[in-house]
Design a protein around this nucleic acid. Sequence first.
DNA 1: TCTGGGGTCCTAGGACCC
DNA 2: TCTGGGGTCCTAGGACCC
Length: 420
Amino acid sequence: MFGLIDCNNFYVSCERIFNPSLNGKPVVVLSNNDGCVISRSEEAKSLGIKMGEPFFKLTSYIKKSGLICYSSNFPLYGDISARVMDTLRRETPGIEIYSIDEAFMDLRGVCEKDARLLGKSLVSKIRKEIGVPISIGISKTKTLAKIATKMSKKYPATMGFCFIIREEQIAKVLSGFPVEDIWGVGRAYSKMLNQSGVDTAADFLKKSDKWVRQKMGVTGLKCWRELGGTPCISLEESVPDKKQICTSRSFSYDIFDIEEILKAIATFSSYSAEKLRRQNGVCREAIVFLLTNPFREGAEHHNQSVLVTFSDYTDNTLKIASNACYAVREIFREGYGYKKCGVILSSIISKSENIPSLFTPHEELFRESALMNVLDEINEKYGKSSIVTAAAGVERIRANQNLLSKRYTTSWDDIIQVIV
DNA sequence: TCTGGGGTCCTAGGACCC
DNA sequence: TCTGGGGTCCTAGGACCC
């Protein structure tokens, strides 16, 4: 058996922990730059607000229905997530952290009765101790556990916990479960499936394995088998190292000045390099990209990326940033208003696998790595971006974050305010 | 005026090898 | 005029996830 724990309306729930007056009210959390909706309370969902709805379309809800909007406060959400995951780790045989608000549970060798008890107790424990409402689903495979979780959200009578294990139970649930809601079936496949007369998970299961393989490849086949009760997607308890590391942002306004782009790219290079060092990796390639605003009609667009290859594998912020900035000069075009840019590190291997080039002086490598250690230590101790490259500049890139909640868990000033 | 950020896996096709 | 068979590796693009 596998379990799935999913925090309900996670970002909104985090905001509510420290501001209970938000309970019972329509609340949404917005993406970076207050661009669009990325989390909604139940009340906001009932108003008809969609996931991904742009902020500027919400004004009537704010006026008429008292909708409350928050800028995203990721340090807060990350902190609450860590608390939830710690509790799960303590209380369960094993978990795989799947995303900031979801974790799979390893229930191999656990009997039905114990699984039931565990599910129920976790829902109340996390609610009580951390203040986050969660939903749990347990079934024979990860894909079925996902479906069970959705059922527990759909039916309040389940009290946040849904256990589907017997054949006839599973069959009944699948016959009413829309194919587009299956984990692994996205927009493209649901369109294709609908056109082939497949509307529910049960319809999908009626198709032959050959048909599924041919139309949806091996990933589709795995999904199909999982629905049939055969586990194909295993539980991964340790987090695999990233094969690509990306840092990118949209700007709150169009940027025409290359100097501003260079600052952003230098900053994103540093963030990416920090993430790389955190997993003890080194990379050989970086992709730098620039995009104009795709929503701006009439204007000419320019979207380009460029691949930079380093002479040696590296984790050095300064090398990565200077190469990335050099690349920007290659692709930047005067007269275009850029809306977004980013740096992706790829060809990543672990530092221990790396054999430095014969021609790189050992001493230089040693000094480089000592420098990076100091950089990371200072930023760890005094806060992100306490020390930056000169190329990144001292002013932060302007982002719209006008509706930010306090940093209740990470800033002393804000914590003291709450206490007062 | 205003539309997120960060990833993964699979496949087809081209380049290249003997 | 005629031009094999069996591989590997890499890349771009498409699909998906939260």
